[in-house]
Design a protein around this nucleic acid. Structure first.
Length: 609
DNA sequence: ATAGGGTTAG
């Protein structure tokens, strides 16, 4: 009798121990004690055990407990599913869902949100839709957790519209900070930075005075980075400081990345230097930043500092270092790294590393070596395309029609099997390569061949996304397309006059390029005629954005920052250098993959890009 | 007792 009552008193204590257990040893010890007391088999204790095993990452033992249960309720099923989802085995979740349905235990909101997040892990919108439909039927879709999980699920499956529809269907009062954050990250992760920033503004006005949490803040910073909105980014940085989130490492990395993508390497470095024990991710991020600024030596010293501190590099880190070597002409250091990365850092070189190295040799004009390496790489599938198209660009820049033709043929093999009806990263890569091919023929004096490539592109409906450039003025982004001055509004006329005037002064300084009209088909921007009668025919978007910036940003306001969605064009690069000397101002251009800082007639890239 | 967000790449 006495023993039994002692046991009855011990059980709640043991359950409490399970609740706080994060290591396997204490869970198994407690499990043994419960068994001795004969108290391990009730649904409640079994569920506690199951959850505790999952928490310690021991999904096998959790499943063992589950198998031994005579009775299982919805908690047992859901807890095990959740265990599998966090163990990165989403498929097991669906197997359990099916057996659960057969066993007659109805799912609840917990089950649906777990199932939705498993679909998110798989990025499978088809399965996700089924889960969504069943939750609608049961009424659980109205649950805030379920709706939030569905938003995230559609987002991970790239169904941004569906995600927004779920978000919009939630009653405004039901939206938690997590719901807002989830929607925000859907935009940020799907490269819709402008929408993310817009939603953040909405949150601040309609969010019922909820304070943004660190998840939300890192997503907004990420969005600012993506679209280069420095002033908003700085403003969010201010909020981060006020709310005391500056020591959060994820936030720090987001800020670091934002400053680096907005043309402020020094700020990036300051944020990095405040991180106490930088892991591989901050190191990788700062190394990638140095690469964009052509600071190859700095990249190498950061890399060795990292290794000396015992931080193990990962694949992306090495891509960053190679990229830095490439942009700084540190060819031998880069090649050495490529050759030794497997043995020294246990990272096997993949297609991206080879592409970087081929690009590096190509830039340096070592085209034969680049070809050899490309052939040696033997990478497969679509990664191959990047390799050859980067080589093709290098051949064009070094005016090697013979080698360009060989690389061009490799690229063409892809273009035949391509689905052109939808714009993808891949189709853009091929389209870009064909444009380069056409121009290579042109500059080699083979106008007919060049025209053939272009008419072939037209016939097959292959087109590049239009190039555009934007500039942020007082928190508003103004986007320009080739030949269209209209975003400048009532100052359009002044922009045109200013550019004319600058062109005259540039001619006096020996500028041979073309600002507009009969410029060559450079492929980076389409002809302006189909976007309405461009008032400045052929003038590139970066030039229009610069002209507008020169007019509206007074000289004392410092650097003019222009963003472009594609690579900066060679003629514009020359022109920007001259203009920086003529007007005695500094410009930073953020291109598709790096920065150019123009000052006193020259560029930070030293024309090596 | 079971559930929902965030960072590095070309």
């Amino acid at each position: 009798m006495a023993a039994t009552s002692a046991a009855a008193m011990a059980i709640p204590l043991l359950i409490n121990l399970l609740r706080g257990a994060y290591d396997l040893a204490s869970v198994t010890t407690t499990h043994a004690k419960l068994l001795k007391l004969g108290a391990a088999s009730s649904v409640a204790s079994s569920n506690h055990l199951l959850v505790a095993y999952c928490r310690c990452g021991s999904i096998a033992l959790a499943h063992h407990v589950f198998d031994g249960m005579l009775d299982r309720n919805v908690v047992s099923w859901t807890a095990l599913m959740s265990g599998y989802a966090s163990a990165g085995q989403p498929s097991a979740v669906f197997a359990l869902l099916r057996t659960m349905a057969r066993s007659g235990v109805p799912p609840n909101a917990f089950t649906f949100s777990t199932a939705a997040s498993a679909c998110a892990l798989l990025a499978n919108a088809g399965l996700g839709r089924q889960v969504h439909a069943r939750a609608e039927v049961s009424g659980d879709a109205r649950d805030n957790f379920v709706a939030t999980a569905l938003v995230g699920m559609y987002g991970k499956a790239c169904r941004v519209g569906d995600a927004r529809a779920v978000f919009d269907a939630m009653p405004a009062t039901a939206r938690s900070a997590v719901s807002w954050g989830s929607m925000l990250s859907v935009y940020a992760q799907n490269a819709l930075g402008h929408d993310a920033i817009q939603l953040f503004t909405e949150f601040r006005t309609n969010g019922q005075d909820m304070a943004p949490n660190h998840f939300m803040l890192s997503s907004v910073v990420n969005a600012c980075a993506g679209v280069g909105r420095l002033s908003i980014g700085k403003c969010v940085h201010g909020m981060i400081l006020r709310l005391g989130h500056e020591d959060n490492d994820v936030i720090a990395v987001a800020l670091l990345d934002m400053y680096s993508k907005c043309g402020c390497y020094e700020y990036s470095k300051m944020v990095f230097d405040r991180i106490k024990q930088p892991s591989v991710i901050p190191y990788t991020s700062i190394i990638v930043a140095t690469a964009k600024y052509g600071l190859g030596r700095t990249a190498l010293s950061l890399f060795s500092e990292m290794v000396d501190r015992g931080v193990q590099p990962i694949s992306v880190t090495l891509i960053g270092v190679l990229h830095a070597c490439s942009h700084s002409g540190l060819v031998d250091a880069g090649l050495q790294l490529l050759r030794s990365m497997r043995s020294k850092y246990s990272v096997a070189p993949c297609a991206s590393h080879y592409t970087c190295a081929v690009d590096m040799l190509g830039r340096a004009g070592r085209l034969e070596a680049a070809f050899e390496l490309a052939n040696e790489a033997r990478v497969e599938g679509n990664d191959d395309l990047m390799l050859w198209s980067s080589l093709l660009s290098a051949c064009r820049n070094h005016k090697r029609l013979d080698l360009a033709t060989m690389a061009g043929e490799k690229v063409s093999e892809f273009s035949t099997a391509m689905a052109w009806e939808k714009v993808s990263e891949l189709s853009q890569e091929v389209a870009g390569a064909l444009v380069v091919m056409s121009n290579t023929y042109d500059s080699a004096g083979q106008a007919d061949e060049a025209a053939a490539v272009r008419s072939d592109m037209r016939r097959r409906g292959i087109r590049k996304v239009p190039g555009c450039s934007w500039i942020e003025i007082k928190d508003v982004a103004y986007t320009f397309y080739v030949g269209e001055v209209s975003p400048a509004g009532e100052r359009a006329g002044e922009v045109m006059l200013l550019l004319d005037e600058l062109e005259c002064k540039m001619r006096e300084k020996g500028y041979k390029g073309r600002l507009g009209s009969d410029r060559v088909f450079d492929g980076y921007e389409e002809d302006g005629d189909e976007r309405g009668k461009g008032v400045m025919v052929g003038v590139h978007s970066e030039m229009l954005a610069l002209g507008f910036g020169l007019l509206v940003i007074p000289k004392g306001m410092g650097i003019i920052r222009v963003m472009k969605n594609l690579r900066m064009c060679y003629d514009c690069h020359e022109a920007f250098k001259l203009i920086s000397a003529i007007v005695e101002r500094e410009f930073v251009v953020r291109d598709l993959n790096r920065f150019h800082h123009f000052r006193m007639g020259s560029c930070s890239c030293n024309d090596y890009w």
